[in-house]
């Protein structure tokens, strides 16, 4: 690099930059500070797991509202599932099955003059309190949907806390059992 007439060039200016140095005392402080930071690093390394709660609380302004939102969402989802049509249909069906067996049916059938007919299909016989004028009145026109086996597991013998399970079992049996069709049966039975 060509030097100017005063012997001043970029290198000589950069010499000044090289001469910018801290004092000797500065390095004592530097070393002391480094040892402190080093110690802190070592301690942090040892208790890495203990940082997790600290991290949570340090970011609590984010985590706490997020946790609240998560709880609210959970509650909403649970409520939605309980009120959903599928869910209510299931419990409706289960409760129908649970109340299906009526011990009064047999008694009604006994009262009825058409005992033989009723005995053939006691489950489908309606409870009749007044004497029938016609045999046809005793036979329901509606086709029964299914056979029920719940008579073998009477609900009154099942403890209250287990009735939901019983209902479920009954519902499953009803659903999976082939239905007994009355379609081919003559309606003039008893004449």
């Amino acid at each position: 690099m060509p030097k100017n007439r005063n012997n001043l060039n970029l290198d000589s200016l950069l010499d000044l930059k090289r001469a910018e140095k801290p004092s000797a005392e500065f390095w004592d402080g530097f070393q002391k500070e480094f040892r402190q930071r080093q110690l802190q690093t070592l301690m942090e390394k040892e208790s890495a797991w203990s940082r997790l709660p600290r991290l949570f609380f340090a970011r609590s302004s984010v985590f706490i509202p997020l946790s609240g939102v998560a709880v609210v969402l959970f509650v909403l989802v649970v409520n939605f599932q309980e009120n959903s049509p599928l869910h209510s249909e299931y419990y409706e069906a289960a409760s129908m099955v649970q109340v299906a067996p009526q011990p009064a049916i047999t008694e009604a059938a006994v009262e009825s003059p058409q005992v033989e007919v009723v005995e053939e299909a006691p489950v489908f016989a309606p409870a009749i309190t007044s004497p029938a004028s016609f045999v046809m009145d005793l036979i329901p026109n509606d086709e029964p949907e299914s056979l029920s086996y719940t008579r073998e597991y009477p609900t009154f013998t099942i403890p209250a806390e287990n009735r939901a399970v019983s209902a479920l079992v009954s519902y499953t049996l009803v659903r999976d059992t082939p239905t007994f069709s009355m379609a081919g049966r003559p309606r003039t039975i008893g004449f």
Partner: peptide, 18 residues
């Protein structure tokens, strides 16, 4: 914020010239 310039540099010829 600058560091101090050492004594040797302070007495350099460049500074005298300038």
């Amino acid at each position: 914020s600058y560091e101090n310039i050492t004594e040797e540099a302070s007495s350099s010829e460049v500074l005298d010239v300038l």
